[in-house]
């Protein structure tokens, strides 16, 4: 499944880039995140509680950052599995200075591929698209509140 979209953060690209890679900030911003622990350079272990309509369950996985080009882009690779299935995602995030706003802000655009499997795929297929969009919106909304 393809995922893409964009979001505007009301901070300069350098600051946006920094918070997008700050485990403490990310852990707070990611919906359902119950822990993010650094296990290597640019690699984190993540615990997450996912709720998708009638399905809910804990996921354990890894988040990895690759191809980092501060402050303009990086790749985010997520892998997790739990009792309701597994998910894998690989996305490219691009940051650019928004020039339409009077104050400084950054457009974060993302484009990637997501795969789900197991019960999550069998039962939740209809809901994944909407839920992932909702979760991303929650994530960025929270990020805005943490950015200042």
């Amino acid at each position: 499944m393809k995922i893409s979209g964009s979001y505007t953060l009301p901070v300069a690209p350098e600051r946006a880039y920094q918070i997008l890679q700050d485990p403490a900030v990310l852990a707070q911003a990611m919906p359902g995140c119950e822990g993010l622990e650094q296990i290597g350079p640019n690699e984190y272990r993540m615990k997450m509680n996912v709720i998708l309509a009638a399905l809910s369950g804990k996921f354990e996985g890894k988040v990895r950052i690759a191809d980092a080009v501060p402050p303009t882009s990086f790749r985010l690779i997520v892998e997790g599995s739990g009792r309701i299935g597994f998910l894998k995602g690989d996305g490219l995030l691009k940051l650019s200075l928004a020039n339409t706003n009077p104050s400084v802000s950054t457009v974060v655009s993302y484009e990637g591929d997501a795969h789900v499997g197991g019960t999550l795929a069998a039962v939740g297929q209809r809901l994944i698209d909407g839920t992932s969009k909702m979760m991303l919106k929650k994530f960025f909304d929270k990020l805005v509140s943490l950015a200042h």
Partner: peptide, 14 residues
């Protein structure tokens, strides 16, 4: 089934 072999019609809602 999707290209990864996941059954995407796995309940009576789908």
């Amino acid at each position: 089934y999707d290209d990864d072999g996941q059954l995407t019609t796995g309940e009576l809602m789908d």
